[in-house]
């Protein structure tokens, strides 16, 4: 077989192959409607407020909007109302909710009547600052179309009977208890969320602004 015959054969084979395959593709090809998966990052929005309190008596004022800040007259032996209550906003991802509390004077103020749905988180590695405690809501807060107000972390603060009228701290006449809520996604963090919360509240800036 000479060279021309080989080239002619190859060309014929190529033409034949193209002639067979192209119509086949025409029959076999087809496309469905496209599927679009939009991934939207989950968000968690949590708020923390408490009932308005009369500064002179330390008792709740009914039928008033909840507030971010209360003021109390410090009277030795008195028990005052204080009920920090988190609210998880609608459409937030399902989450664990924590509330950290910083008490400047644990010798004067003691937190009382912790809610039954809340548990004190153990700080086994002593990461938290002085006077800081962290409470965890016992259940996962599921995603919802409505805002979900949880139960109060605690109900009262007891002022020591030994309070002598001075705080013996940075200020002699003023002290504060600050609280902040922290919520972390529940999915995939079952065994880790407590550690995340401790790490979060161990940062001293958390209660500064």
């Amino acid at each position: 077989m000479n060279r021309k015959a080989i080239i002619a054969g190859a060309a014929a084979a190529a033409l034949l192959t193209t002639g067979i395959l192209v119509p086949s593709f025409a029959f076999l090809s087809g496309q469905s409607r496209k599927i679009v998966n939009r991934f939207v990052s989950a968000l968690i929005t949590v708020d923390l407020k408490e009932t308005l309190v009369d500064p002179e008596t330390g008792k709740k004022v009914d039928n008033e909007p909840r507030v971010y800040e209360n003021t109390y007259l410090t009277v030795a032996g008195r028990t005052v109302d204080k009920d920090p209550t988190p609210t998880v906003a609608k459409n937030s991802a399902s989450c664990y909710v924590y509330v950290g509390v910083r008490n400047e004077h644990t010798d004067i103020f003691s937190i009382e009547d912790i809610g039954t749905e809340w548990t004190l988180v153990t700080d086994s590695e002593n990461k938290l600052g002085e006077g800081v405690t962290v409470y965890k809501y016992n259940a996962v807060v599921p995603k919802s179309d409505e805002d979900q107000q949880l139960s109060a972390v605690f109900e009262h603060v007891k002022i020591s009977e030994n309070f002598d009228g001075q705080f013996h701290g940075e200020s002699e006449t003023e002290s504060a208890i600050e609280a902040r809520a922290y919520a972390v996604q529940s999915e995939g963090t079952e065994a880790l969320s407590d550690g995340y919360a401790i790490d979060y509240f161990s940062n001293s800036d958390v209660f500064e602004n």
Binding site: S41, A42, L43, I44, T45, V46, D47, L48, K49, E50, Y68, E69, N70, T71, Y72, L73, T74, V75, K82, P84, P86, S92, A93, C95, F109, V157, I159, G165, Q166, F167, E172, T173, E174, S175, A176, I177, E178, A179, R180, A181, Y182, A183, V184, Q185, G188, T189, L192, Y196, Y200, F207, N209
Partner: peptide
């Protein structure tokens, strides 16, 4: 994968205690 998670935080809820001026 361990540290990628979503979280939220609230405002600070504050209680100021003061003493009566003698």
């Amino acid at each position: 994968s361990t540290y990628a998670y979503v979280f939220g935080q609230s405002h600070i809820c504050r209680s100021d205690f003061y003493t009566e001026k003698t």
